[in-house]
């Protein structure tokens, strides 16, 4: 199973190295990797300096959003929960934009940190809205998330209007975009995201139990509160990191876990690694479309994931 997903990821990544506004034949892509002489210097530069960092970034974003989606769905027992729908991605955007607007520097460290703070704040806010009389109200959770998302998008527009010049590129954040990311960010984002995903994977058995009910999980020996606190913290961290490099990319955390659950079942010990790998492939593939459909201009990748993911949301909503 994992082999198939890894092979898919490699195939998609090779395709992504080849396709683009300048198409590079597969033989040259392989040649670049193996160090063959027949590849021109321009092609080498395009592949190694432009496309490869972007593909790695796409993988991280896709994996992170999918893992966060799986965990939210397990903790909230709702297949509709994901970072975008819950407004957590928008919170991250506000955090990042405030950091940049206040000239804390768009550095590879402060922006992800501010973004994490924003995500975590919205996580608490949405949870607080939906938590009444000890019960988590699913409708309030989803509606609250969408409303907070809309509100924070408005805040972002306002901040952009005030700071105008410095933040022109921030518009790209609202639609989700991989083109403006700072390649240095990979060095910060990759290790943290991998460690956070690994820690969450170690909780997979607890997620199985919690996804059948908080009380049931307690009856079966899970320290539910502790597991939830840790998991909300890590998913906010992952979402914040992802948003700081890509902006708001919606529905990935909804579509990928759903597909993986259909393919591999609901056991989180399988579902988490599968979603991690398939999420990476999915976003790299979506990014190919974003770069090639209207080449040489780009469609924001968030528009593509929304176009593919929103129908799945409607389908899941009608079924639940």
């Amino acid at each position: 199973m994992c082999t198939a997903l890894v092979l898919t990821l490699i195939a998609v990544a090779l395709a992504a190295l080849s396709f683009g506004s300048v198409s590079i034949p597969f033989s040259h892509v392989i040649g670049t990797i193996t160090g063959s002489e027949s590849v021109t210097a321009t092609e080498r530069t395009i592949i190694l300096s432009i496309r490869l960092p972007r593909i790695l970034l796409a993988m991280l974003v896709g994996s992170g959003l999918s893992v966060a989606g799986v965990v939210f769905q397990a903790l909230l027992r709702n297949p509709l929960a994901e970072p975008y729908i819950l407004g957590i991605s928008s919170g991250g955007t506000v955090g990042a934009i405030i950091a940049i607007g206040l000239s804390l520097g768009a550095s590879a460290i402060t922006t992800p940190l501010a973004s994490f703070a924003g995500s975590a704040a919205v996580m608490f806010l949405v949870y607080g809205i939906a938590h009444r009389r000890g019960q988590l109200d699913t409708n309030a959770l989803l509606l609250g998330g969408v409303m907070i998302g809309a509100f924070f998008n408005a805040v972002v527009l306002l901040i952009i209007a005030v700071f105008n010049q410095e933040l022109r590129n921030a518009f790209l954040w609202l639609m989700g975009n991989l083109s403006s990311a700072n390649p240095d960010a990979i060095i910060v984002v990759a290790p943290v995201l991998l460690v956070a995903s690994l820690v969450l994977l170690l909780q997979a058995r607890n997620f199985n139990l919690i996804s059948t009910g908080d009380e049931t999980a307690m009856q079966l020996g899970v320290e539910v509160k502790r597991v939830k606190r840790l998991s909300y913290l890590l998913t906010s961290l992952i979402t914040g990191l992802v948003v700081s490099v890509s902006g708001v990319i919606g529905f990935v955390g909804l579509l990928i876990p759903h597909v993986c659950r259909m393919l591999f079942g609901p056991d989180h010990r399988l579902l988490l690694p599968a979603s991690f790998l398939l999420g990476a492939s999915y976003l790299v593939a979506a990014d190919i479309l974003s770069r090639t459909l209207l080449a040489p201009s780009e469609i924001p990748v968030g528009a593509i994931t929304a176009a593919l993911g929103a129908p799945v949301f409607v389908y899941l909503l009608r079924r639940s």
Partner: peptide, 21 residues
């Protein structure tokens, strides 16, 4: 417990194995 609410589609075996947790 009394019947619990909506669940993810774990198999019966997976549910019973949870008792070993």
């Amino acid at each position: 417990p009394q019947d619990t609410g909506p669940l993810f589609p774990f198999t019966v075996l997976e549910i019973v194995l949870m008792g070993r947790a």
